[in-house]
Design a protein around this nucleic acid. Structure first.
Lengths: 175, 175
DNA sequence: CTAAATCTCTTAGTGGCTAAGATATATATC
DNA sequence: GATATATATCTTAGCCACTAAGAGATTTAG
């Protein structure tokens, strides 16, 4: 096999491996939401709140891609479950900040322990230098996905004949 | 900073970076489903069919975590859209195999072009050896998430006081 | 041959989502 | 300052995918 072909094969494997693990990650999230007894979007919002801290309802809508109406429902359920609190902004009284209630939100956090432990186990096998490579890749990958999302929306306005062609991979058929 | 602390910080960064990119990946998927005009689960099933080839309705339910009733609806919609075909197994006539229709499914595949291009661009900056490291990590990560999903379900039966404690990370607060 | 198991589909009911608009507050223009 | 427009959240009506339960069809076990 030529060097170029070897690399193509490597890239193919990599793509499939990342798709698989990413898909399984989604399933883990679904399991967490299921165990926690809240809807999937609710959990996603908790995640955003965990990452960004205190955010407005509007920003939750923006980040999740849901309508503001849907967010009202999400926050209603989370508030009733005692996981978050609504806090009106005194400076701009139209705004509502959503803040997690750490004591109760902690229980959600516990559900990520199995995941953290599994990842820790994986990471332990790597040197600092290798981890830095993974970090670099994760950051660049994030930017790439972000750009792809924007490009996808642009694709809607591009006439089909001008779109870059897709090379379909053959499927492994199971008998 | 001690070497141990530096590694802890590195792991924290890595976790956050992977969460971010994974979350953005989910959003990309939503955008694809949106542009394609099909439901999110429908797209997820197309993805599974792409990876596994021809699978039974039951396995789709198993892999997606949906009920078989829901899968009936998914396949109904996909079939009406001409993306898949139902094929009864002649050996075991209870089974229904779902097979993609390549000619039409190709149109869905096109929506992944922006993502593939973005990833290609990222990957181009890495040597074969580095890509092998990423591949190894992706595969180990997949196994880890798989194990974590199983462990999470086991957590349901574990009394709370026996569960491993969670170290909550402080949130960055935005004013 | 009968009973239990397996696989998919059907039905009724539930719940989160969107779209459109209402409400409240803030900002710009005259 | 009064009016108009913009912004941020909430409300409502209707839709559609999902679950739960069970029916129908086929296979396997005893």
């Amino acid at each position: 096999m030529s060097r170029a072909k070897a690399r193509t094969a490597l890239l193919g494997e990599l793509e499939e491996a990342m798709r698989r693990s990413s898909a399984q990650g989604v399933l883990y999230g679904q399991a967490v939401a299921n165990v926690a007894g809240i809807a999937n979007s609710d959990l996603e919002c908790m995640d955003i709140l965990y990452l960004e801290g205190r955010v407005t309802a509007g920003r939750l809508a923006e980040v999740t891609g849901l309508t503001t109406g849907a967010i009202t429902g999400v926050v209603d359920r989370l508030e009733k479950a005692g996981l978050v609190r609504r806090e009106r902004d005194e400076a701009d009284r139209r705004k509502v900040y959503i803040a997690v209630v750490p004591e109760t939100a902690m229980k959600i956090g516990e559900l990520y322990v199995p995941m953290q432990q599994a990842m820790e186990k994986v990471w332990n096998a790597y040197s600092d230098e290798e981890l830095r490579l993974l970090l670099r890749f994760a950051n660049e990958g994030y930017k790439g996905v972000l750009a792809a999302t924007a490009a996808l929306k642009g694709l809607l306005d591009t006439p089909p004949e001008k779109r870059p062609a897709l090379k379909l991979k053959k499927h492994p058929r199971q008998t």
